[in-house]
Computed example of a mutant assay.
Amino acid sequence: MKFTISKEYIDKRRRSPLFVACIIVVITTSAYLLGDWTFSGVFTFTILMLAFTVLPNWVGAKRHIEGARNHYIEVCDSSILSYGEGYKSETELGLVNSIVLNKNRSGIKSIILKADKRLIARLENYENIDELANLIMETIPNAKVTEKRWIHS
């Protein structure tokens, strides 16, 4: 079964630069209305802040979204295959001896696969992540499973 990046995550990543832009505009407008700055100073500062914070964030988000749309993973008998545009990688599940499930009220948020004391993979922001976790646990029956609750859940 193919597991793709969730639409909610893609939408959240798309809104991120707009949220930062709104915050900058609100802060600079309030500074102008409080009388601390002149209009030309506020306008110049707003343009510079938008150029140096929102523009790089927007470019990065656009690249990330394009890659996320083409990315998916599959769980096979002994490995997790990760596919993207122009690449395929494989993570051996035979090396995994512990699985950490990070949860909050709505369910599993991420799956961490560890071998000894090193991290092999961190799987997050996938659709049907609960089903993915069950499939991985069925594939590795002797792995130690730890469930962690986040403080802000």
Rank of each mutant, 00 (worst) to 15 (best):
L48N: 07
H152Y: 12
E74C: 04
N104W: 01
S30R: 07
I111K: 05
F39G: 01
G84R: 06
I80T: 08
R63L: 08
S40Y: 15
G67A: 11
N70D: 13
Y72N: 01
I140V: 15
R15T: 00
I99A: 02
V26P: 00
I47E: 07
V145E: 11
V25N: 03
S40N: 14
K7V: 02
K7S: 06
P141A: 12
D116T: 13
N104A: 05
A21E: 05
G35C: 05
K117H: 14
Y72V: 02
G67I: 06
M137G: 06
S153P: 14
A121G: 08
Y9L: 00
A68G: 12
D77T: 12
I23H: 03
E127Q: 05
P141E: 11
K114N: 14
V54R: 08
S30Y: 15
L50Y: 07
R105V: 08
L95V: 13
L93V: 01
T4M: 05
L135C: 01
E8I: 05
V54Q: 05
E131R: 06
Y87F: 15
N102D: 10
T46W: 04
P56S: 04
N125D: 00
N128D: 08
V54A: 07
I120V: 15
D130E: 15
Y72D: 01
F45M: 06
E74S: 04
L34W: 09
A21Q: 07
D11Y: 03
N128E: 12
R13M: 01
L33N: 09
I112F: 10
